[in-house]
Structures are given as C-alpha cells and as structure tokens.
Amino acid sequence: MPETTTATTTDGTAGADPAKRSLGTGPGRLLVTLYGVFTVAAASRSLYQLIAQFDRAPLAYSLSALSAVVYGFITFSLVRGGEGARRAALGCCALELLGVLGIGTWTLVDPAAFPDATVWSDYGMGYLFIPVILPVTGLIWLRRSRRA
C-alpha cells in the first residue's frame, strides 16, 4: 500500500504530500500493469528454462531471470510511491534501458553467444519491442511525476 502523509499547504490546509503520492496512479497505472505482466512473464519463462534447459543456454536464461528481477523491483517501486521509491525506479529503469540496448546489440553482433533468446534479445523483438519502449516510457513518467 502506498505511503501517504498529510502536509500543510501554502493556504494552511492539510492535504496529501505530493512527494508521497503513488507513482502508480494516472498514466503510471499502465506502467505498473505492463511491468507486472513482464515480471510474471520473464520470471515464469526463465524459471522453467533454468530448471529444465539450463545446459542449453545458461547465459540467456540467467539474463532473462535478471530482467524479471529488474521488472519486479520497478513494479514494486511504482506501487510503493514516494521520493525514495521514485529514485530507485529511476535508477532501475536506466539500468534496464542499458541492459536492453547492451544485450540487444550483443545478440546481433554475436548470435552464437545466445543459442536461445532472452527477454532483451534483439531489443525485445520477440516481445514487440516493448522491453525497449518500457524503460524509456518509465524514465519519462518518473521525471514528470517528480514535478507534479
């Protein structure tokens, strides 16, 4: 449940502290939904692959598990709200974007290193490029929510 506190506004009335409002409200609700879906998708896929097929592509499956952890942390931060959670989500979205760009480039340059795809392979092409769009959208939302 998001933290809320009351603060006295400039006119002397009590109201919700905007720094503690949930990042998952308004347009952020769509981000929470998408990150939640990607958390479940990446976690379930990588868990199965790590258990049943690890010897086939350990690097790819481990990177998919890492992406699930990143997605889960961002989801949690967006739901939690507050300035600390916003900063943590901002850092994770930046890390996610670097991961998508780095792994996406790596899979194109050295396809032999990835006998099976990760969530971030080919910039998320297997997921309609949502993995590369999501962190950009998240970074924009997190920057805008700071000013609100």
Rank of each mutant, 00 (worst) to 15 (best):
Thr4Cys: 10
Leu97Ala: 10
Ile103Gly: 02
Arg144Gly: 03
Ile51Leu: 11
Trp120Arg: 11
Ala16His: 12
Ala65Met: 14
Arg56Asn: 14
Val136Thr: 05
Tyr127Asn: 05
Glu96Asn: 15
Leu78Ser: 04
Cys92Tyr: 02
Leu101Thr: 11
Thr10Tyr: 08
Phe114Asn: 09
Met125Arg: 12
Leu95Gly: 08
Ala89Glu: 02
Arg86Ala: 14
Thr33Val: 14
Gln53Asp: 14
Val109Leu: 05
Phe129Ala: 05
Thr118Phe: 07
Ser64Lys: 12
Phe38Cys: 11
Val79Thr: 04
Leu101Pro: 11
Pro18Ser: 06
Phe73Asn: 04
Trp106Phe: 15
Tyr35Glu: 05
Cys93Ile: 01
Ser121Met: 14
Thr13Ala: 13
Pro115Lys: 07
Leu63His: 01
Pro131Arg: 01
Ser77Gly: 10
Gly24Ile: 06
Thr118Ser: 11
Leu63Glu: 00
Asp110Val: 07
Ala113Gly: 15
Met1Trp: 06
Leu97Gln: 14
Gly104Asn: 03
Gly91Thr: 02
Val79Gly: 02
Pro2Asp: 10
Ala42Asp: 13
Ser22Trp: 01
Leu30Met: 00
Ser46Thr: 00
Tyr35His: 11
Ile140Asn: 00
Ile133Tyr: 06
Ser22Leu: 04
Ile130Lys: 13
Val40Ile: 10
Phe114Tyr: 14
Tyr71His: 13
Asp17Glu: 10
Gly24His: 02
Asp116His: 15
Pro27Trp: 12
Asp17Arg: 05
Tyr61Val: 08
Arg45Met: 04
Arg87Phe: 06
Ser62Val: 06
Thr5Val: 15
Leu78Ala: 10
Leu101Cys: 15
Arg29Met: 13
